[in-house]
Amino acid sequence: MNLLTRIADIFGFLGHFPAYAIAYIVETLIVIIFGTVAVAGMVYLFRKYMARVQIRIGPNRVGKFGLLQVMADGLKLFQKESIMPSGRDDLAYKVAPVMVFIGLMMGFVFIPYGPLAWFGSLTVTHSDVSLVILFALIAIMPIGEILSGIASNNKYAMLGALRGVAKDISFEVPMMLSILSVVVMASANVTNPLDLNGIIQAQSIPFIILEPLGFIIFFISMIARASQSPFDMGESDSELVTGNTTEYSGLRFGMFYLGLFGTIFLGSMIVSIMYLGGYNGPEVGYLGFVWLLIKTMILVVITLTVWLSMPRVRIDKFVNFGWKILLPLSFIQLIAAGFLTLGGIA
């Protein structure tokens, strides 16, 4: 019994189809709220953690321990006047932040959250190819970023977008290859290796042990996907002001901000599903979701530590790194995965 059927039961008096339709909408809303709250929590955590690292105190005025600071900031962004540049491509300018936001939230819908206590499985929907769908959906986000850069009628924004493109194409291929090697490994044990649930079930031994190289490649790619330091060449505040988001203010900027932190959270979640066994752990049927969250938070903290301690990589060096180091390594990883699978180790 999962959460979806429980909700559908409540609306059972409407008949089978309307009840499930409403149940899907309600659970999608729950997931979106979860995503937003998780991101807000992560922003708070990030600010507190960053403050500790930097010998500061961090937010401590709004609410107890500054817990409501993120909310206050959100409200402030909501109230702010949206100043838009003249000479912009109006439609593209307005659509871009929405694309980032939607791409992120759609990604959250396909995550297998695992079961939690009485609620049962929290997963909204699943498909036999949910892995492919997930990566197709989060591939929408860079399009929004590029669009925002082109539409802003600003040279900083355009340079930022160009860097964004150069960055994206140089890590996406190794990333997809390392995903492929995960699929190859999973195919040895389960019949649905393109399903995220199948991948989790295949990990009686977490893939981080069997494919450490793939984990590193994928983790680096996920950090680059979130375009945070050391791979924040697109935004690079000391060179291009804030890159593609330079001309955005108010709620539209808020969406990009949410996109940045949301990608870190979603990325960490995907890494923990692909390599750390997702919701696997003791008492899966009861605490699966908690395990997933714990693994995700560990990865988030590692990501933030990387963010806080690294200078920015130069864009041409990163492109070199992507094509000349990550790509060959991911091919090696793929071949190794094939051998491991044939040898029956996985």
Partner: peptide, 9 residues
């Protein structure tokens, strides 16, 4: 160079 933390040290 994009290093925020040492600034505070």
């Amino acid at each position: 160079l994009g290093m925020l933390t040492p600034f505070f040290y």
